[in-house]
Simulated assay, not measured.
Amino acid sequence: MQDVENVYQNAYNRTKCLEGLFIHDISNLFQIISNSIELCGSLLKEGLITEEILEYFQLIAQQLTRGKKLIRNVRTLADLEEYEMVLEPVEVFSELRNAINFSLISFPERKIKVKIISDHENLNVMANELLSEVFENIIMNAIKYNKKKIAKIEIIISKVIINSEKYVKIKFKDNGIGIEDDRKNIIFQEVHLKRRNPNGMGIGLSLVAKLVELYGGEIWVENRIGGNPTKGSNFIILIPFAKKDR
């Protein structure tokens, strides 16, 4: 009986995780689509037919495709009796580049510099297609919560071994507003959401933490500069290697 309860509880937790992700990301998608349509309208009123308009229409199409994928995932998770989250080898750099590209086009008016640092070219972890959602949440928060003229994000990827287990370590270093020390332990907790505005950073980070946990990994945040929480943050993720890379 206890095993059955655990199965349903795990399925319920996964469903709530993606439900929150769906609401959070769909809201972002609609905002991006709305902004793109508004910009296209302004250009058309001025009689301008440019490549910029075509880029905005491509952005709208991308968001619609992304929305369809999210809906499909939510429908899959809705079947609590049969669904189990299947993990498979996922290539980190490919998902990361997709997340970077999406984040950059989501802030067309911001100056953003993203740099990837790694001694490796191809690394596979045990995850699924939602890994890009994890990366996007962290990158977009680093841009959104940044008052600098140029938002800078440095992503360092390496291999580590902890307690005989092999992981891919992904560190996101930003020059944003930082996170106070007394909040570092609660920003990943779901209870933190009830105290924040629905558009706040806590929503994305809570979902990120849940997904990373489902992957068998860990996530935490540190000050970019030791002892000074106002000079940016380091978000660090550990995800187990895919079996073929062990």
Rank of each mutant, 00 (worst) to 15 (best):
H120A: 10
E55D: 12
K243V: 07
A11F: 03
F93S: 07
N10K: 10
K113A: 13
I32D: 06
K244E: 15
Q31W: 09
K184R: 14
L123P: 03
E46T: 07
T65I: 06
I33R: 00
I236K: 00
A142W: 06
P108D: 13
K231S: 08
H192E: 07
D182F: 06
K210H: 12
K16T: 08
V4P: 00
V208T: 13
E38V: 08
F235T: 13
E218Q: 14
L211F: 00
F102Y: 15
E52Q: 08
V74N: 01
N13F: 10
I157A: 07
G216Y: 01
I153E: 06
R195I: 10
V92W: 05
N6H: 13
S118I: 04
E136F: 11
P89M: 03
T50K: 03
A142L: 03
C17W: 04
L104Q: 08
E82W: 12
C17D: 11
I60T: 07
I161Y: 04
D245V: 01
D181E: 11
Y56T: 02
L64T: 08
I26Y: 14
G176P: 06
K113E: 14
T65R: 12
V191K: 10
N128W: 06
I60W: 11
R183S: 06
E81R: 07
Q189F: 00
G227I: 00
I112E: 09
S118F: 07
K148Y: 05
K152A: 09
N141Y: 09
M201V: 12
A61N: 15
S42I: 08
Y167E: 10
D119Q: 14
V86D: 09
L70I: 10
L39C: 05
E91I: 01
P229N: 05
V125L: 04
R72Q: 11
L205T: 06
G204C: 03
L29E: 11
S94I: 12
G232C: 05
Q9F: 08
F135P: 00
I177Y: 04
I138C: 01
D119L: 08
S233R: 05
G200F: 06
T50A: 03
F172E: 02
L70P: 02
F57N: 10
L96D: 07
G216W: 01
K159W: 02
P240E: 00
P229A: 02
N141S: 13
S158V: 06
S118Q: 01
K45G: 02
K244W: 03
K169R: 15
R97K: 15
H120F: 14
M126W: 01
R66I: 07
D174A: 06
K152D: 06
T50Y: 01
L44V: 14
Y215L: 01
I100F: 07
N98L: 13
L104N: 01
C40N: 09
E38F: 12
C17P: 00
V134I: 03
A99K: 04
K184Q: 14
D245N: 11
T15Q: 06
Q58N: 12
P89C: 03
K147G: 12
L54D: 15
F22L: 12
L80S: 08
K113F: 09
I187A: 05
Q31E: 14
N223Y: 05
Q189D: 04
I153Q: 02
N199E: 07
V86Y: 08
P108K: 11
C17G: 08
E91Q: 14
